[in-house]
Structures are given as structure tokens and as C-alpha cells.
Design a binder for these strands. Structure first.
Lengths: 167, 167
DNA sequence: ACACGATGTATCGTACCCGATATATATCAT
DNA sequence: ATGATATATATCGGGTACGATACATCGTGT
């Protein structure tokens, strides 16, 4: 099916573009964009566990563990064992980072996409957003229908709260 | 900007979904999906260079070199130095693969996306396709406007011919 | 109190992906 | 012909990403 082909390529293209584009901004701070995403999430929570990060960022626990480890080495994050549950690790911003973080890092996120949308008029932006919504919804429905065992990561609350693990 | 946020997350989500979903099919053949993409491209050309693959697949030359190397090791591809230009390497399917390839591998590509689109009616599919078109066009325009030095890889003919390097 | 299953992290192996660099070959100017 | 430049590939280092596994800790049931 030609349409699926085009959409598949588009997704691949857009993904690479956003990654590459954001990377340039992140480099100036000496971090990568997955690292920025982790930092932003930690910043939003003040203190989080690896588990929570992996849920909110939709990465596996092992990936998050890796990234956090590098950020600790770089001195951006700090890990302290949780008192109440010694399995948990409390991840928080290092003091050094806790001040300079203002807009600089936390807002790198989708700077480039904003620049892209600026080139479109209101109507075109609507079209783009609607297309995304429809497609994402369809994907989510399909996953539910097929009962993918990735349910833990790719579940229905992906775009809902963005934060709460919802016990 | 909220809209940019949503779109950025959508792209990330769709990318991960398509990758994960396709991976399952590819696994049955003992390959990964980047490997499938390379194989399909070689299949379409009968014989190609690393350079051409990297242009058509929008991966860097080093990435393609890696993947080709693994496929050679697995016995799926063959490398023979080009006679007329000894810098070039001719990449082709191994004999073993040249027969069993029929539909099986070459069409793995976007099976899952088709399944997703099937859940949408004609009108919704239009919306999705249009949204992608508008967004991709805007991205391409922005890249031209900013004269990104990635021009060699991310250029205007991305979605045009899909094959020709266009000398 | 204790065994057992569930849960949270870290670690390992593999693949991908990129930029930078090295090497060999080709091409072009003189 | 020769030297400078350009091109094609391979290689290296580092970061991402995942599944599988190991390990410690928690909770529960008995």
C-alpha cells in the first residue's frame, strides 16, 4: 500500500530530523537530547525513581538506568537510596544544576518543531495536528485490540497525564 | 508551545511503535528492520554501493557500512570490489537469499502501518496523509531556508525518486 | 518466622546511529 | 607526470535502545 509507505517514511524522516535538529541545541550544553528529556523530567518532579522515569519517557528501565548513570558521572544528577524502600533510588538534580537550569535546558525540548510550525498558517497547523491525533489514536487502538504485551510501556495513558504512574 | 509538544511526542511515539512492531516480523527471519531496509534496497538495485544505500536510506555511510558488514557475516549479502572504480564496493544479494526473497522479506517494510490504516475510513486516512505531507514539506522548507550543512543527506529529493542519486 | 513471588535496579550482550578520522583510489590542475 | 584535492569505504569512540538476567528488597500467606 502506497499510503502506508509514505507515512512510514515520513515518520522515519521526521524522527531523524527532530533528533538531529535538537541535538545541535543540546550539544551546547554538553548533553544529548535523551539526556535532556531525563533532566527535564527530574526537574519537573524534584525527585523520581528510575521506574517512574521509564514510564513517563517511554524508555525501558535499562535505557533509563544507563542515561541516568552518565548524567550522574557528568555531575548533573544525584542518586540517593530511598529510605523507606531500599529498592528504590531517588534521582534528583545536582545543586550545581539546580540553579542554572531556568529556561536553558528544560525548554530545549521541541524548539525546532516550533520553528517548523511557524512556517505554517493556522489552518495548516490544524491539519498537521489532526493528522497526528487520528494516526496516534489508531495506533493505540490497534495495540489494545492486539493486546500487545508491551502494555506496560505502550499503554493507553501515554499521552494522558504525562506524569502520574497511576497506581 | 503546546502544539509542538504534542507533535514532537507523537513523532517519537509513532517511531517507536513502528520500530517495535516491525521488529517482531523481522525477527522471524533472523534480521532487524534496518537490515530489512538494506536488503530491500539491495534487492531493488541488484547491486549498489554503500554510498548509494546511505543516500537512499538516509543513514550515514558509517551506519550503512556496519549493517552491511553484519549482513555479509550472516550470509545475506556479498561484497565485491568494483572493477572500474576500486574505491567502490558492489553489494549484492547472496545466492541463497536471491531466491527465497519473494514476498517474505522485501515486503516486511510497513506491514504494521497498513494494519493501522485499515482501522480508519477513507476520510480519516486522507487527514493523516495530508497532515504528514504538510509537516514534512514544512520541515524540508525550513532545512533549505537554514541551509543545513546536512544537505547531502537531508536534501530536497528525499521523497522524490527514492532511488536515483541524481548525479 | 519463613518461604515465595513480586518489584526496582544494575549489568551484559547486541544492534543501531552518528561524527571524526584513516586509508585507498580517482580526478584534476599544472 | 606529479602533486593537490575530492571521493568511497572502513574503523573507532560514544551514546541510545532493548531484552535477558542477576540481585537485593519488599509484601504476603502460612
Amino acid at each position: 500500500m502506497e499510503r502506508a509507505n509514505f507515512i512510514g517514511e515520513s515518520i522515519e524522516y521526521l524522527h531523524r530530523y527532530t533528533m538531529k535538529s535538537l541535538q545541535k541545541q543540546a550539544e551546547e550544553h554538553g548533553v544529548t537530547i535523551p539526556q535532556v528529556r531525563v533532566i527535564a523530567e527530574v526537574f519537573a518532579h524534584k525527585t523520581v525513581s528510575v521506574k517512574l522515569l521509564s514510564q513517563n519517557l517511554k524508555m525501558t528501565q535499562s535505557t533509563v538506568s544507563d542515561i541516568v548513570e552518565r548524567l550522574v558521572t557528568k555531575g548533573f544528577l544525584e542518586k540517593t537510596p530511598n529510605i523507606r524502600d531500599k529498592r528504590l533510588v531517588d534521582i534528583s538534580l545536582s545543586e550545581r544544576l539546580d540553579e542554572n537550569i531556568d529556561e536553558s535546558i528544560a525548554q530545549i525540548q521541541n524548539q525546532s518543531l516550533i520553528g517548523v510550525l511557524d512556517r505554517l498558517d493556522a489552518k495548516e497547523q490544524e491539519i498537521v495536528e489532526q493528522g497526528m491525533q487520528v494516526l496516534v489514536s489508531a495506533v493505540k487502538e490497534k495495540m489494545i485490540a492486539e493486546d500487545m504485551d508491551d502494555n506496560k510501556f505502550f499503554n493507553i495513558l501515554y499521552f494522558s497525564e504525562r506524569d502520574e504512574p497511576k497506581k
